[in-house]
Write a protein that binds this DNA or RNA. Sequence first.
DNA 1: GGAATGATGCGGCCAGCGCCGAAGCGTTAC
DNA 2: GTAACGCTTCGGCGCTGGCCGCATCATTCC
Lengths: 226, 226
Amino acid sequence: MSDINHLASIAALLGDPARANILVALFDGRALTAKELAYAAHVTPQTASGHLGKLFEGGLLTMEKQGRHRYFRLASASVAQMLESIMAVTDTQPPRPWRGGEGLRNARTCYDHLAGRLGVALASFLMDAGHLVLSSDGGEVSASGLAFLRDFGAEPGPSKRVFCRPCLDWSERRPHLAGRVGAALACRCFDLGWIRRQRDTRALAVTAEGRVGFQARFGFDASFGQ
Amino acid sequence: MSDINHLASIAALLGDPARANILVALFDGRALTAKELAYAAHVTPQTASGHLGKLFEGGLLTMEKQGRHRYFRLASASVAQMLESIMAVTDTQPPRPWRGGEGLRNARTCYDHLAGRLGVALASFLMDAGHLVLSSDGGEVSASGLAFLRDFGAEPGPSKRVFCRPCLDWSERRPHLAGRVGAALACRCFDLGWIRRQRDTRALAVTAEGRVGFQARFGFDASFGQ
DNA sequence: GGAATGATGCGGCCAGCGCCGAAGCGTTAC
DNA sequence: GTAACGCTTCGGCGCTGGCCGCATCATTCC
């Protein structure tokens, strides 16, 4: 009883377009200020402030003050996964024409890991090389995969068995690599300067070093025909 | 742009208490009539009809006419997973006192698999016996586990590698067994008559045969102290 | 055919909520 | 100190949307 109302109240928070825009803007895991989020949601700062208060109250966001700025970010990975699962539903629906930018299709972040053609290409390479097994239900990194990741500088952690969470890509409709392994891989690619975030979009830019690096290490052309 | 509005519209569908009640009532995968759902949502049939129309229009439900009845069920497993992930968020939040029935804590269905103490106990047995490895990120059935399941009559499918999706239990806070394997296991337990659905609740009843069977096969007491 | 039942359509009521303008508070910059 | 900036609170407007009573249609039972 009470928890169903709680479910509904959480969902109602996501149900307003302005708040949905705010959450999606934060979906890549960054922390943004109230003003930036107001811009992202296409509302005035006052209105955004109200929404942010509700989202914070609802436990979906965390906030930290820094001088006269307030930085907001998603409260946890489970919030990101919730957004992900809703996007999965919006996508399994009538094949509505996708009018988003081509940049988002190529490469984007999905909270803490990589998605789009880049994410799928990475996962494909690892699978083809026998480093990874992935299905819709789960996945696992092999011994050779663990060595490969370690050599690449993306050690996923100390646990003996390294499972991964697959994440169905809404643009490519193929699973890509999420979970600890996906996060470590994405983090390393940022560190190497292979990919860079862009302003005002979740789309990622593959740098010149990145194109060379992905070709050399992972054997695919990260320009995706551009 | 357009897909964010779509996300918001889906979330708005879940954001109304009456619709949330309808979806949760359908969460165990059964098909229910419009009247039953009106009762579950605590609204009149007219109101429920409106809600069902919206949910159907939004692609969250499927409907089939049978005589003068209309049976509704969740449109897909991805809808169930969406609900699951929202429940996960509602639960990772302030440790609000749980006022639900004790029956639900013991055994319930989670769309197509088993949850509650029963679900966790099953997963624990399989893990202790070396039949299953499960973490928060993923899981896998071992060769011995595959043989065990086959012998039990719950063959999960022909694929060489059998991964499982873990599902964080909101009452036990431990992962239990979802995905194809979880569904096959639950299905077999129903077939054997070990568990039975109850009216007007997602809670399951463990039958006398079930208590004997779970004790013999899985080595735990399925009465859970009752 | 007639009555009962399940489901839907319509009209009207009303609460709730999103929105912005104006004003207030706190911090930073000069 | 003064000004600029970021953010929040308050108040009022306007509209969406949930709810039910009543009526209608379709199906089944007798």
